[in-house]
Nucleic acid binder design. Sequence first.
DNA 1: CCCGTAATGATAACGGTTTATCGCCCCCTG
DNA 2: CAGGGGGCGATAAACCGTTATCATTACGGG
Lengths: 122, 122
Amino acid sequence: MQRDTRQRRAIRRVFMSAGRPLTLDEILQYGQRIVPSLGVATVYRNVKTLVREGWLSRVKLPGGGLRYELADRPHHHHFLCNSCDQAFDVHRCPDEVETLAPDGFQVDSHELILFGRCAACA
Amino acid sequence: MQRDTRQRRAIRRVFMSAGRPLTLDEILQYGQRIVPSLGVATVYRNVKTLVREGWLSRVKLPGGGLRYELADRPHHHHFLCNSCDQAFDVHRCPDEVETLAPDGFQVDSHELILFGRCAACA
DNA sequence: CCCGTAATGATAACGGTTTATCGCCCCCTG
DNA sequence: CAGGGGGCGATAAACCGTTATCATTACGGG
């Protein structure tokens, strides 16, 4: 039986108001503003469950640990700030992308990452 | 004084015949075919030196550790095989890429990664 | 060819992320 | 509202990539 705990609700709220991919530390930090006692293990457990349920998806970006975002987002890419290390969404995408692979290579998906300084850091 | 050791020559040879970004394990593995006694520490040391000398460059791709490739390559991107985890070069690039960032974001560089199965795994 | 010294390599240690443990708490059903 | 059991959270521990240590090896100038 899946219980509806304060902690799990907090984690969901964090993602619904974030609008960008979050690291585990960010989830923990923002979640503790709602439930101050929130612990690391709980975040790991719930994130794993939410991914299994299809509510979150893993975002693999270079460096550090995995990030997570709401799974129901339309196709998009990411901007990674070299200064604050936060990830942001990029809503446009060059479309011919998957035709660039060498012959014989089968493309399943792609990721475009822009590196630089975000609006707050620039 | 910079000595020209068998190990360092082996590592350079590995990169010159690889033609794709290599993880540290791959460098070690291929290098040991030339110098069987080659150790991890030596690979880390020489790779770091070769990066400092500008002969190698770091390639940050999602997952696992850093990869390295020859530094003198022209602008290109990468294909990452979901099956064997090897990285390959993609020589074409959609050009308007850096204009995709949100307003106020300053783009320094970008990386386009295609995921799928390489020719050998497909 | 010899010697000084930088480089090697086996191994231990480190730092960061993720998972396991376990006593206590609190969500849910009856 | 009471009891059972899933969830929580502090902590320990597993894990992985990387770096430090140090006795030994071997490059290369003289």
